[in-house]
């Protein structure tokens, strides 16, 4: 079969995708790499010069970078387990037999948070969490909680919105994993035991692992590049309370215009993301 397809045909099919990927993915990455090795400030273009790894040295010794990274990891460490726990719960409920129409409606409604534009989520948050007029405080019996202006509350608010928006994604991925479990095996297991935990642990979980690894990788990458929602909601404040790593990079690159330093920060972030993804795959991933 293989011999029948000419090399030209293969190239014709794969070539455009490779060229497209190179144009929109590889070329900007290489340019960012080049920029990161230079003093490159948009408002001082006459001074562009090769400075080797100086930008990387600046990033790695800058406490602000590590604080922003730590903040981002804290968000990931809090939001991701919540999303997985709630998502698994929703998936298990939707996997129960019966109530087909309701389940279909529930599945459809799960798409809504994901379909909401990130920036709009932030703007909604500004209104809903307004200390004086916001619906959240009203629902809490007219509480006078300062959500946006208090560092801790602002962080809690970001966690809330991230969980609200991405738990449905986790639920749908895990629900897809549950549907992969062969019906006869699951049925046999249920005949063997009425303990749902045993069924989940020994029968369903192995089929959920690939989905869970995908969730870990995607959500980690998403959290590391979380920008729009936070930018429109708190702009990284108050103080630095919600200045996550991507907001910091945007600030350096587009508000202080130091593209060289921002590129070095972005490259380091990319390396961190790749390393984390590799760790997830090696530690958690198992073929069923």
């Amino acid at each position: 079969m293989r011999g029948r397809v000419s090399r030209g045909t293969i190239l014709a099919f794969i070539g455009p995708a490779v060229v497209g990927l190179a144009a929109v993915g590889i070329a900007p990455l290489l340019y960012a790499l080049w920029t990161s090795l230079h003093f490159f400030n948009l408002t001082k273009l006459r001074r562009v010069e090769f400075i080797g790894l100086e930008n990387y040295g600046t990033v790695l010794t800058d406490p602000v970078f590590w604080q922003a990274l730590g903040r981002t990891m804290t968000l990931l460490g809090i939001a991701l387990p919540l999303q997985i726990g709630l998502g698994l719960g929703i998936a298990l409920i939707l996997h129960q037999p019966g109530l087909t129409l309701l389940k279909t409606l529930a599945r459809l409604s799960l798409v809504l948070p994901m379909a909401t534009t990130y920036a709009v989520v932030g703007l909604l948050g500004q209104v809903m969490f307004n200390q004086k007029f916001g619906v959240v405080n009203q629902l809490m019996g007219g509480a006078d909680i300062n959500w946006i202006g208090d560092p801790t509350n602002a962080f809690v608010m970001i966690v809330f919105w991230d969980v609200w928006q991405w738990t449905p994604f986790v639920a749908l991925v895990l629900l897809a994993g549950l549907t992969m479990v062969p019906g006869e095996i699951e049925e046999a297991a249920r005949l063997e035991t009425s303990n749902w935990w045993k069924v989940l642990r020994h029968v369903q979980l192995p089929f959920l692992v690939p989905g869970l690894v995908a969730v870990l990788i995607l959500r980690t990458a998403d959290t590391l590049k979380l920008f729009d929602m936070v930018f429109t909601l708190t702009r990284g404040g108050p103080g630095s309370a919600t200045e996550f790593i991507s907001l910091m990079i945007q600030r350096v690159g587009f508000r202080a215009f130091d593209q060289g330093l921002a590129s070095a920060q972005a490259i380091i972030l990319l390396i961190i993301t790749i390393v984390l993804a590799q760790i997830y795959i090696r530690v958690f991933y198992r073929e069923v």
Binding site: G237, R251, A256, F257
Partner: peptide, 18 residues
């Protein structure tokens, strides 16, 4: 533009008592 970013960060930290 570079200096205002510094003032913004540390000025806010002062106000927050950090």
């Amino acid at each position: 533009p570079e200096i205002t970013e510094i003032v913004q960060e540390w000025g806010t930290k002062m106000m927050l008592g950090e």
